[in-house]
Design a protein around this nucleic acid. Structure first.
Lengths: 226, 226
DNA sequence: GGGCGTCTTAATTTTCCCTTAAGAATCGCG
DNA sequence: CGCGATTCTTAAGGGAAAATTAAGACGCCC
């Protein structure tokens, strides 16, 4: 089976445990980000897209439960795997109630962790998980569909690729070069306004100020509605 | 006797029990998914196809009865084997009333479980084994037939395989590669439009927008009727 | 071996997407 | 305020992907 590279967020304040986790996951080819408290975690999850979150419950500043709760109330359905201490069985129940997808009791075996990750992603793959939410917009990478205000919007391949990239990191400015490369690979296609045309179509199909132009540089999907 | 590989969903929140169950079933070559609460179970059953469900009654978030009830009201006839505690005899009655196919009292013997599974599948084999419903369409895997609007439609082997796969995960885009492989195995049959032709026949025999084309990628049976 | 149903191939048509191009609008800067 | 540069907008052409059709190949059952 072809292994997939995932974008994983680990939220864990125990440094040695976190380090081991991150190292193990990176060795599997995943992109791993580590944060050590709930506030930062929630921020990151609001502004960027992850394929999976591994979340410790006992966190400084904002505990894991609260993070999970807020995450789900934001309609964010990123799969969450919870880490709990051995004795806190009722934590497990509460976590699942709040929308966690799985849990793991500390200390755990890396083998088991990996198995859980596989299971979790297999499970969520068939369904519409890893939807991407942005403002009142939902992207379904699985079905190549976009829903905006309850309506289905049909995007072409190029349009979808662009939008997917732009809103997967709101607030991040993508240069024209980067976006062109995303579509065309490394072929050098100098003079062409194809990109502008695609952006134009996107704005027309969804809403005009979805993508903001940074003159002379590129485009960005803004982080917040001003 | 040739053993059949089944796709089994285990819904059980008692971890150690569930683990044992899953391990035992996997050792028999089955594909096993484990979920730990009713909501997730119902979701999975709505979006994917299983050959058998092993369902605990005492589940968090949504109890086994409710899952079963909803399942049947959705016209889903996947065989269900219920797990109940020793003393809850009336549970058994209610469960069978609701459309369970068998029950098993905890704690149980794995040998017995397997026997029940065999019996259950043998029994349901005579009937319409796990018919598949999709929109106003019913698929009967063993007869290769499809009923659409009270009418029988005869599908050929290829057509049936394709349709079966597509609607077993509504909303999931199947790439041309995946579908070709489904039919032809690993032989490399490069240029051929056989797939398009089969899709064409399916649309003609049933209804045209049953399968949506994702240009440049593949095909999908959409999740909702828009 | 003939006939039937099914699958594949092949040729043609249709559809749809991407790009191009050219003029209009907008922005930034002097 | 005006000019050049950049981006927007629009429409049309080319081209690739898919749909459609028909015919031939294949396998299977009698």
């Amino acid at each position: 089976m072809k292994e997939i590279q995932l974008r994983i967020l680990v939220v864990e304040d125990d440094v040695s445990l976190a380090d081991g986790l991150v190292t193990a996951l990176k060795r599997d080819g995943h992109t791993v980000d580590l944060l050590q408290d709930g506030i930062h975690a929630l921020e990151a999850l609001t502004n960027e897209r992850f394929d999976l979150v591994i979340l410790d419950l006992g966190l400084p500043r904002l505990d894991g439960f609260s993070v999970l709760k807020q995450l789900r109330s934001n309609k964010n359905s990123t799969p969450v795997l919870i880490l709990t201490a051995r004795d806190a069985i009722e934590d497990k129940v509460e976590g699942l109630d709040l929308g966690a997808d799985d849990y793991l009791v500390k200390p755990f075996d890396v083998i088991e962790l990996k198995a859980r990750i596989r299971a979790l992603l297999r499970r969520s793959n068939g369904r519409s998980v890893s939807e991407i939410h942005y403002r009142n917009l939902t992207l379904f990478p699985e079905s190549h569909k976009v829903v905006y205000q309850e309506k289905d919007i049909n995007l072409t391949r190029r349009e979808f690729t662009l939008l997917h990239e732009l809103i997967s990191q709101p607030g991040h400015v993508y240069t024209r070069d980067v976006l062109l490369q995303l579509i065309y690979g490394w072929e050098d296609n100098v003079d062409s306004n194809a990109l502008e045309v695609h952006i134009h179509h996107l704005r027309k199909k969804i809403f005009p100020d979805l993508i903001r132009t940074i003159r002379g540089i590129g485009y960005v999907a803004d982080k917040k509605v001003e």
